Simulated assay, not measured.
Amino acid sequence: MVSQKIAILIPCYNEALTIGKVVADFKMHLPYAEIYVYDNNSKDETVAIAKKSGAIVKHEKKQGKANVIFKMFREIDADLYIMIDGDDTYPVDCIKQMVDQFTENNCDMLVGDRLSNKSYKNENKRAFHNFGNNLVRALINVFFGSDLKDILSGYRIFSRKFVKNYSSSIKGFELETDLSIYALHYGLTIEEYSIHYRDRPEGSESKLNTFTDGFKVIKLFFNLVRLYKPLLFFGTVALLLFTLGLIFMVVPIREYFEYQYVYKVPTLIFSIMLIIVSLLSFATGLILDNISIIDAKNFKVRYNNTL
């Protein structure tokens, strides 16, 4: 494990209260790793404290956690990457066990699972966060045929191949959802390690907005279903439109058989339009599904050839 070049990635925005402890914990439990703190326009003493603690400090001006992580992935060269928040909510004392599991099982991504025990439910004081976590987890597991316990954890380990091949257009806290669905779509090896989550210390404020960020995550999920499972997405739309078309067509058909004449011509035209659009939607799904299959095959070639 020591022979691997390990990089600790800590994106930060106003984490002066906790960043020093997070860096110190990694220096204690993983002394041979390089610790990177990328500041995202903090207004407090985050940068000064991180430097004093011995971290390599850099900056990302584009606001948003995803923007920071993308820059880290692009600039930092390592064999193994550990992503963690700077708010001291994730335990560092188990990091050696996490790295061992990741290395021994040749994972592409290992997720720090907060939800398999009661620590997150007991510690997290933010309303609706437990509900949001369960909803997103259920949606992804159903649509992608997985059995992941924690979709939104910000504590993850990545392989070099994962980091150098990952790409996305998101900007903020939807990052964890995108990482999970990306790995599931391309058939990468994902494992989880149960951790004990703790809430932020008093005086430390979360940057998450329960409803705004929750809506963004749900919106991202359906956009990714459209992107990664186009036949399912457009096929569902086609089925709904086709069903509506048949329902609207009942009245004109009944009129024709009863009076040998259609009085509600606009209804007939509307129903035919719905059926035509449904067929176009289904055809679109078929075409995009073939493109998605080809993309997945090309991705595997690129991924396996990454040094």
Rank of each mutant, 00 (worst) to 15 (best):
V301C: 00
V68G: 09
K118R: 14
A283E: 03
G54N: 05
L288T: 00
G132H: 12
F162Q: 08
K125S: 09
V163F: 04
L208E: 09
M273N: 13
N105W: 06
D199H: 10
M249K: 07
S271L: 07
L135Q: 09
F173D: 03
D25T: 07
F73S: 06
Y193H: 12
N134R: 13
S180P: 03
D44Q: 01
Y186E: 01
Q97C: 02
V23E: 04
A66Q: 07
V217T: 14
Y13S: 04
K297N: 11
Q4R: 14
I253M: 10
T306F: 12
T267Q: 15
S159Q: 02
F221H: 11
V22C: 14
I76D: 04
Y90E: 10
N122I: 02
F222L: 02
L307T: 12
G245E: 05
V57S: 01
Y36R: 00
A33I: 01
D88K: 08
E192F: 02
A55C: 01
I8W: 03
S194V: 12
E255H: 13
H129Q: 11
L152H: 06
Y303W: 01
I293A: 11
A24H: 14
Y81Q: 04
N130P: 01
Y259D: 10
N223H: 15
D147C: 07
N124Q: 15
M72L: 12
S53H: 05
N41K: 12
M1G: 08
L286R: 13
R74G: 06
S168W: 05
F173M: 06
T267A: 11
R200G: 00
E176Q: 08
L244I: 14
K149Y: 01
L110A: 06
A66C: 11
N209E: 11
K207Q: 11
N290M: 09
V163E: 04
F222Y: 12
L30M: 06
I10Q: 01
D44H: 04
F221P: 05
S292L: 06
I287A: 13
V92C: 10
E34V: 09
A66I: 05
S53W: 08
F162H: 12
K71L: 09
K118V: 13
K121T: 08
I56C: 06
D88P: 07
R126K: 15
I35L: 03
P266N: 09
K96P: 02
H185M: 05
N165C: 15
M109Q: 02
A48K: 14
Y155Q: 09
V22M: 11
R160W: 05
G145L: 09
T103P: 00
K52F: 03
D295R: 12
Q63C: 10
N117S: 01
M1A: 12
N122A: 05
Q63W: 10
F282C: 02
L232A: 03
I247Y: 08
A238Y: 08
G235H: 10
Y186K: 10
P252M: 03
F242W: 15
K71I: 11
N130S: 07
K207P: 07
D77C: 09
E192I: 02
L148A: 05
K300Y: 01
S167P: 07
A24D: 14
L227P: 04
L286P: 00
R254L: 11
S3W: 02
D100A: 14
D113F: 04
R200C: 08
K149E: 06
A33G: 00
I218Y: 11
L179V: 11
D147P: 00
A16W: 06
I276A: 07
N165W: 03
P91V: 03
P266V: 06
K61W: 07
I294D: 04
E45K: 15
Y303T: 01
